[in-house]
């Protein structure tokens, strides 16, 4: 069992995780040293670091799901989203910082898939930090060459008459997929629709859940 750290919570106000009790690694030592030097030099304050961690923790796929559900229920909003996804996300109250976001729409004939072959660019300021698989050699290498095979590994088997459009986030834009609204959801309200929108459906490696 990890020993008890509740008497000193982390600077973000949360209990230390069990993995903070493992042997101190070289890289953790570097992180503490860099952070403390920057604080001592007046470059950053502990409060700024805590606030940034809290801001990142507050970002999650639920934010993107809310944007998608709004687009499914409000045609004018959807038009604004496809014209300028950053402005549309800010309109909903999300703090996305300087994110330049483009929304790409899945239809009956087009399926979009997001990747960053050069590193791990991701719409983190809306969806939070990317899943580990997004950063792997396997995903980054294969998504631009055999996206259909990649999608099958995620359980998505696309018919041949659906065109796949892969988006390689090579520079200053980030991408979010606007998935197609599932059939049989006419009676659902915006909040219920948002529950159907998965993280992977906004990366393009998944589809929205079907209603119960």
């Amino acid at each position: 069992m990890p020993h008890d750290h509740h008497d000193h919570l982390s600077p973000s106000g949360h209990p230390y995780r069990a993995d903070n009790d493992g042997p101190l690694t070289y890289w953790q030592r570097m992180e503490i040293a860099v952070r403390e030097l920057l604080i001592e030099k007046g470059v950053v304050t502990p409060a700024e670091i805590n606030a940034q961690i809290d801001a990142m923790d507050a970002r999650s796929p639920a934010n993107g799901a809310a944007v998608v559900a709004r687009a499914w229920t409000d045609a004018d909003f959807k038009a604004r989203l496809l014209a300028d996804a950053s402005a549309a996300s800010r309109e909903m109250g999300f703090d996305i910082g300087p994110l330049n976001l483009i929304a790409v729409e899945n239809t009956a004939t087009v399926h979009n898939l997001i990747v960053c072959t050069l590193c791990s660019c991701y719409p983190r300021n809306l969806l939070g930090l990317p899943p580990d698989w997004y950063k792997t050699r396997e995903y980054r290498s294969r998504a631009v060459r055999e996206p259909r095979a990649v999608l099958r590994e995620f359980g998505v088997d696309l018919p041949n008459d659906v065109q796949v459009r892969v988006h390689d986030s090579t520079a200053d834009m980030r991408y979010i997929v606007l998935p197609a609204r599932p059939e049989g959801t006419d009676v659902l309200d915006e909040a219920a629709l948002a529950e159907l929108v998965t993280r992977d459906s906004m990366i393009g490696t998944g589809l929205p859940r079907n209603p119960q």
Binding site: R145, Q163, V166, A171, D172
Partner: peptide, 26 residues
């Protein structure tokens, strides 16, 4: 900066998984 669209046929030739699928990059 431009978003440029390529066909899989252009990128991967005969070995393309689906020639009409595309890749966009900036």
């Amino acid at each position: 900066l431009y978003r440029v669209r390529f066909t899989m046929a252009e990128l991967w030739g005969e070995g393309a998984e689906a020639p009409n699928d595309t890749v966009d990059a900036e």
